[in-house]
Write a protein that binds this DNA or RNA. Structure first.
Length: 344
DNA sequence: AACTAGCGCAACCGCATAACC
DNA sequence: AGGTTATGCGGTTGCGCTAGT
């Protein structure tokens, strides 16, 4: 037996929403909320729409503070970084971009950003090829080849260094402990009272102080401890999440270490726990990268080695910093010191 | 001016999972 | 514990607009 349909398809209107329908839905939700039941909502308002459709319309279009179009370079950057780290998990990516919906980001990526990066990549490849050719000609080599450069990823476009995202204090998400906790649990998954933060903590490739995220969250520190239970840390309002460290293992974390990104540290959990989807990213990562993604296995699915991802994403000088970073982390230096070397 | 191809976006579909009974 | 229902999410589709011919 198949699954019961969520609504009576015959009596449900489809297609674009009229301004009247929008107004009905908006005013009702603004006055009464969703009532926790989207399926019943259209009947209450007298809309001939499926509950799912109402929910989508509200979330993607009618909800207050929704931004449409006009993506900034910074937003592009964040989307790219996150896409590489976690794949097409649009809702999580959207959560890092206030006012953006998953649908919007998905559309933007599929229709523009991918092409934009592809264009950049082609330009760079061309430039590299021609400069290599010139060098070989200078040396008098009659059979020029494109120079092999293991440190430099030819597929990653140069992206400007990110400034911190100016999160609004009025943004509803992440400005309370419960939301942060929810996010981190969602991202990291398994936190029990006895648990260390994650398996990453047992093998702390990277440890960073995440005090930087304070700026993002209305001055409420989220300092997640690798030595204290996650739950306890998140519940500890008195200590205001006392200065601790958080294990980072993966592209997103490394990126943060190197000051190239500005999304919350909790995301690294996902990088470690969920293999990034690289299919279709050949233009960014190169065919070899995508095809030979078997490095570390998580169950039956393979994922790419995060260290390799790191060197892919960062320019050569940045990846050389890895050793220094690890040394410094051993000395328990803070993330801010890494981000702003010599400035603190 | 008419036609067409490509693009961008809103909306739909179906699956996975959470929540409830 | 197992079945049912609601919700959330990512992939896909279809339509309207625009630029090119």
């Amino acid at each position: 037996m198949g699954r019961a349909p969520c609504c009576d398809k015959a009596n449900v209107k489809k297609g674009p929403w009229s301004p009247e329908e929008d107004a009905k839905l908006k005013s009702y939700i603004e006055q009464h909320g969703t009532g926790g039941n989207w399926i019943a909502l259209p009947q209450k308002i007298g809309l001939k729409r499926c509950g799912k459709s109402c929910r989508l319309r509200w979330l993607n279009y009618l909800r207050p503070n929704i931004k449409h179009g006009g993506f900034s370079e910074e937003e592009d950057n964040i989307i790219c970084s996150l896409y590489i780290s976690i794949g097409s998990r649009w809702s999580i990516i959207a959560a890092q971009l206030p006012g953006r919906t998953d649908n919007d980001i998905k559309n933007y990526w599929n229709t523009r950003l991918k092409k934009k990066l592809l264009g950049k990549q082609r330009k760079e490849q061309q430039a590299r090829r021609s400069s290599g050719l010139k060098q070989e000609m200078k040396r008098g080599n009659g059979n020029p080849v494109v120079p092999a450069d293991n440190n430099q990823n030819p597929y990653w476009p140069e992206l400007p260094t990110l400034a911190p995202i100016p999160y609004s204090n009025h943004e509803p998400h992440f400005n309370d402990h419960a939301s942060i906790r929810k996010l981190l649990i969602k991202l990291g998954g398994k936190f029990s009272d006895d648990d260390q933060v994650s398996h990453n903590a047992l093998n702390p490739q990277f440890l960073v102080d995440v005090s930087y995220t304070q700026q993002l969250y209305d001055d409420q520190s989220i300092n997640v401890s690798s030595s204290a239970p996650m739950e306890e840390t998140l519940n500890n309002s008195d200590a205001q999440f006392a200065q601790t460290q958080y294990a980072i293992d993966g592209a997103a974390g490394l990126q943060m270490l190197q000051g190239e990104s500005s999304f919350p540290a909790g995301l690294e959990q996902m990088v470690g726990g969920n293999p990034p989807r690289l299919e279709g990213l050949e233009f960014l990562l190169g065919d070899d990268m995508v095809n030979n993604r078997i490095r570390t296995t998580y169950g039956t699915e393979s994922m790419i080695d995060c260290g390799e991802m790191g060197s892919l994403i960062f320019p050569p000088d940045a990846s050389n910093r890895e050793g220094i970073i690890q040394q410094r982390l051993l000395q328990e230096c803070t993330f801010d010191e890494l981000r702003y070397p010599g400035q603190l």
